[in-house]
Design a protein around this nucleic acid. Structure first.
Length: 354
DNA sequence: CGGCTTTGACCCGCGC
DNA sequence: GCGCGGGTCAAAGCCG
């Protein structure tokens, strides 16, 4: 198997991520998706795990194998929307109620962005991973043709996805000047927030010199966690939101939501808002906590309560406890930024220039 | 009234 | 040293 290998510039921050090798060619070797892969992959780097199982399907891993993998890794992968489709041109777009529509580059220089006008060109991808990988299904002739197309498209997607992850990691490594793990996601979204399952506190917003749009600043609300993210509109395409993550989560995903489900819409913004309580619009629940500044938190009754230093008032957030209770997230929009937004080429990603 | 966002001020690093 | 621009702070204000 051909692989791409990278080394992190700041391994002291991520000891388990001192190097990364990912395949550049399609692999059906389940052994590749082992602990090392996940711990050293983008998912391990970002600790954005604890997602549903469907990315295994996305990657073309049979469900039974995915189950084995899930038992072996600490951080399952993002779930794929149930109505996700792969365009004939091998891009993937997640159509759902969730406004964070995924776009994955087909290669380093081509990105397919779907909209309602080209849905006729989509190839459905709702078959089980088992059927995709093993073909172990009873299909009519036309269905079999579709299935073959799906398999081909899926494998192409996996290949391009791996390449995309490699490119993203490579870009990230080159940017790691300040010993901070940093990477970005570009999502097609009317919302500013990419729902990743973590609970964020918005602590600032700035107008940017080089952009007519404002940048929002968030930090993870979990005590001791230094993860931050910034969200801004893509300069070239305001319909896309650029989310830049900085630092590593030191905890698992808080189980705010019900267990992973293939129902992507379950985690849309309105649902989040209703689950998480009162709020003002779409940011609620994703970037929510008490105000900025010194915060004290305590554990009580299997819950973390965030306490604002000014008001001593708390908001209930569930524990970050056992894996069995871990929720899910939607961080699945890995993209090679330079391919869709030229202004985001490597040299623009100096840690202090964002 | 509590929880959360907004927003102006302040801080800090960098380039000139 | 100064100014610019990005990042952060925290009081005020909004909303359910």
């Amino acid at each position: 198997m051909n692989t791409l290998s990278f080394s992190l510039l700041s391994p002291q921050l991520s000891p388990s991520l001192s190097s990364l090798s990912i395949p550049t060619t399609i692999t059906n070797d389940i052994n590749f998706f082992n602990d090392t892969f996940f711990e050293k992959s983008l998912f391990g780097l970002t600790n954005v795990g604890d997602f549903g199982p469907s990315l295994y399907e996305w990657l073309g891993i049979a469900e039974e194998d995915a189950s084995l993998v899930e038992r072996r890794v600490k951080h399952p992968l993002p779930s794929l929307p149930p109505d996700a489709v792969i365009l004939e041109s091998s891009g993937i777009v997640a159509h759902s109620q969730n406004p964070a529509i995924s776009i994955i580059p087909t290669n380093n220089s081509d990105v397919v962005i779907a909209n309602n006008s080209n849905t006729n060109n989509r190839v459905g991808l709702k078959r089980s991973a088992k059927s995709i990988v093993s073909g172990n299904v009873n299909l009519r002739g036309d269905e079999l043709d579709d299935e073959k197309n799906n398999i081909t498209t899926r494998l192409k997607l996996r290949e391009s996805t791996m390449a995309s992850i490699a490119a993203t990691m490579n870009m990230n490594n080159k940017r790691n000047k300040n010993n901070l793990s940093k990477f970005a996601f570009l999502t097609k979204s009317e919302s500013k927030n990419l729902e990743d399952g973590y609970k964020w506190c918005k602590y600032g917003e700035k107008s940017l010199k080089k952009s007519p749009f404002q940048r929002s600043y968030y930090r993870c609300t979990t005590i001791g966690c230094n993860a931050k993210k910034r969200v801004e509109r893509c300069l070239n395409d305001p319909t896309h939101a650029l989310t830049t993550y900085e630092g590593l989560h030191t905890h698992n995903l808080p189980p705010i939501l019900p267990p992973p489900s293939r129902s992507f819409g379950l985690y849309n913004n309105s649902t989040l808002s209703s689950i998480l309580g009162r709020g003002r619009g779409i940011q609620k629940g994703v970037a929510s906590d008490t105000g900025a500044g010194a915060r004290a938190r305590y554990h009580a009754n299997n819950a973390i309560t965030s306490v604002n230093a000014r008001t001593d008032s708390g908001s209930s957030v569930n524990d970050v406890g056992s894996l069995e209770n871990i929720g899910t997230g939607l961080l699945e929009d890995i993209i090679n930024l330079s391919s869709v937004a030229p202004q985001y080429h490597h040299h623009r990603y100096q840690p202090t220039s964002l």
